[in-house]
Nucleic acid binder design. Structure first.
Lengths: 169, 169
DNA sequence: GCATATAGTTTGTGCGACAACTCATCTGGG
DNA sequence: CCCAGATGAGTTGTCGCACAAACTATATGC
């Protein structure tokens, strides 16, 4: 069994050694699996959902900024937006001040769609976290958010700031 | 802005509404980004690492069980194992009792490689979680593990049990 | 012994990511 | 005013990967 290495430590007998990545993968896969069916005809499933959410809540000035926020390649973002636009959920708004840039804005249909989906997605998330009681679910969400925002503060991209200043203290 | 829906709740002003999936994506992407460079020539980067880890720690009886554990398609697992075997890290062990099945076992080189990598991966994970103090990092890992195991108890696949019975209480 | 199920592999297809290129527009230097 | 370079966006081509559908081989049950 090769009991060498840093397996047994003094602290607790927790031994979550090489499993962190696996835990993460399991959770993300389950997230996709639970959320995708809720999204129905929404293009590109969770990707589309996240974009729609970022468009509504994030208020990114350009398509490039939106792509950076979501760590999506610019060239990929083009056809993702294409498909969301075809579905009537978002629009490319021309910016008279800089005619290269397009700001992605939500349509009325998009806003209604997102509002409708958000509650159901939230429920699905809670179901995913059903292994934890309510207090721990909140703690987990909180820690996860801190981690993600910490990562984004190290890596170049801005982001998070928008969500961060809304926190209690 | 569509202030409807479940945005504002009584509890805290946390508003982590549609961002859970995004947080998760950020973390997993950062995980790949941090860990992959450490793995060097190891085939299929984090995938290969997780397989190697599962082979050593998980003791799955067959290749199919291994695939199910990692949520990898059987047909994909074939060439992943192929490449790990070509690299001399694992071997397909024939089972005389069932000559269809192959048990994937680690080689000496594979064991040494994994032992060497585990410490460095652990460090990279800690760096990822640098936004949290040490106590919260442990809490986060713990909650994540519970969530993942909870998910795997709902979805058919076994797994987790192996890690679970090693817990303190 | 035949039907059916299971472990693993092979092959083909389609989608998604990324690189390289193009186009349009902005910005600064002369 | 004009030119060079930078930047936002879109287009095209290529590659790798995941998945479905075959196929081989063994096992098991009637």
């Amino acid at each position: 069994m090769s009991g060498t290495g840093s397996r047994q430590r003094a602290d607790a007998g927790v031994r979550t050694e090489g499993d962190f990545g696996w835990h993460l993968g399991v959770l993300l896969a389950a997230y996709h699996g639970s959320v995708s069916p809720l999204l129905g005809e929404l293009p590109h499933t969770t990707r589309g959902y996240q974009i729609l959410s970022a468009v509504v809540h994030g208020d990114q000035p350009t398509q490039a900024a939106l792509a950076a926020h979501l760590s999506i390649d610019r060239t990929v973002m083009t056809y993702l937006i294409d498909d969301l636009a075809k579905a009537g959920l978002v629009e490319r708004q021309l910016n008279p001040a800089d005619r290269r840039a397009r700001k992605i804005v939500v349509t009325e249909l998009g806003a209604r769609t997102l509002a409708d989906l958000e509650d159901r997605v939230r429920e699905a998330e809670e179901t995913l976290l059903a292994g934890l009681d309510e207090e721990r679910r909140a703690t987990f969400r909180d820690l996860l958010r801190h981690v993600a925002c910490g990562i984004r503060r190290i890596e170049p991209v801005d982001a998070c700031t928008a969500a961060e200043h809304l926190l209690p203290g």
